[in-house]
C-alpha cells in the first residue's frame, strides 16, 4: 500500500509536535498504521521544528526525496526549508504569519515579504492553500488554537486519509478540556477556509 507522507514544520513553540500527536492519535483510532519522527533537545530553542510522518504500511517515518504528499507549514519561510522532500505533486497548507528570527535584527540574514516565500512555493508544487491561521484562531476564541486551524485546513486536502470523526476524537483525548470548544471551532473554520480555496 502506498503511504501518505506528511511533512509538518514550523518554529519551536508553535505547536508542531502537538499537531502531529493529534493526527497520529487519530490514525490509531481509525486503526491505520502511522509512524512519525520528532526532533527534541537543542533544535527546539526557537529553531526550526520539523516532524515527518507516514500513514500506512511504512517501517520508517523518514520521507524520501520528493516523497511528501502534504506539507503543513506553520510559517511561510519554513515552508521552503525542505524543498528536497517536495515534488511537483505536493500540496501545501501554509500559515502566512511570519516569525522573524533574531538573526535578521542582527543583520546576519534577511526576511523577505512572506508572500515572496509563498509565491515561490506556489511556482514549484501543485497547490498551496494559504491562510492566516492566527487570525482564524483568534476569531475562534483562542489564539493558541492556531495549530488546529492548520489541521482542519489540512483535512480538507483531497486524499487526506483521516476523517473528521477520528480527528475530533483525538483532539478530545489530547487537548485540555476547557479549550476544546475553541479548538473544534478553529478546526472547522480552517477546514471551511481551505475547502473554499481548493474549490
Amino acid at each position: 500500500m502506498k503511504t501518505y507522507n506528511i511533512y509538518i514544520t514550523g518554529v519551536g513553540g508553535q505547536g508542531v509536535v502537538r499537531t502531529s500527536m493529534v493526527l497520529g492519535l487519530a490514525c490509531v483510532r481509525k486503526g491505520v498504521n502511522v509512524v512519525m519522527s520528532e526532533i527534541h533537545g537543542m533544535a527546539q530553542r526557537g529553531g526550526s521544528v520539523p516532524a515527518e510522518m507516514k500513514i500506512g504500511d511504512a517501517y520508517s517515518p523518514i520521507i524520501e526525496r520528493g516523497g511528501t504528499d502534504l506539507l503543513i507549514s506553520f510559517e511561510p519561510a519554513e515552508s521552503l526549508r525542505a524543498t528536497d522532500k517536495l515534488s511537483k505533486d505536493t500540496v501545501a497548507v501554509v500559515n502566512v504569519q511570519p516569525i522573524v528570527p533574531v538573526t535578521v535584527a542582527l543583520g546576519q540574514s534577511k526576511y523577505m515579504e512572506p508572500v515572496t516565500y509563498i509565491n515561490e512555493l506556489k511556482s514549484r508544487i501543485r497547490k498551496v492553500v494559504v491562510l492566516n491561521a492566527e487570525d482564524i484562531a483568534r476569531e475562534a476564541g483562542n489564539v493558541l488554537a492556531l495549530n488546529m486551524v492548520m489541521l482542519g485546513a489540512s483535512s480538507a486536502v483531497p486524499g487526506f486519509p483521516i476523517e473528521r470523526e477520528y480527528l475530533v476524537a483525538a483532539m478530545k483525548e489530547n487537548l485540555p478540556a476547557k479549550a476544546i470548544d475553541a479548538n473544534l471551532r478553529a478546526f472547522d473554520m480552517g477546514f471551511e477556509q481551505a475547502t473554499k480555496d481548493l474549490a
Binding site: 526525496r65 521552503l80 524543498t83 515534488s87 515572496t116
Partner: peptide, 12 residues
C-alpha cells in the same frame, strides 16, 4: 520522484 528546489535565500 524529482524533488523541487529553490534559489531563495532563507533566513537563518
Amino acid at each position: 520522484k524529482e524533488p523541487v528546489a529553490t534559489d531563495l535565500q532563507l533566513p537563518v
